[in-house]
Amino acid sequence: MSAIVITVDGDRLPARAGMTVAAALIAADRPELRRSPRAGTPRGVHCGMGHCFECLVTIDGTPDRRACLVEVSDGMTVETSR
């Protein structure tokens, strides 16, 4: 488990190689990832296994990536839409 650094909404955060982006965000106490489409309510990780699409974030410039499926890598850039 090597320590790495990712950038989330401009902030540099520590993470461990191999953990998911969702886990890195939760470990950094950033549970809110986006707002719901109609009511605009805060949303975070829900199913944690790729089928609910609640945890969509932009990763290294690619939008609509599921944070619960993608593993972090050193220097990764994550943008939430909170």
Partner: peptide, 19 residues
């Protein structure tokens, strides 16, 4: 609300990512 998940999500976070 963020932070509300099913148990399976908690299990994956803990087992897969140690979080």
């Amino acid at each position: 609300l963020p932070g509300v998940m099913p148990p399976g999500a908690g299990q994956r976070l803990a087992k897969l990512s140690g979080t």
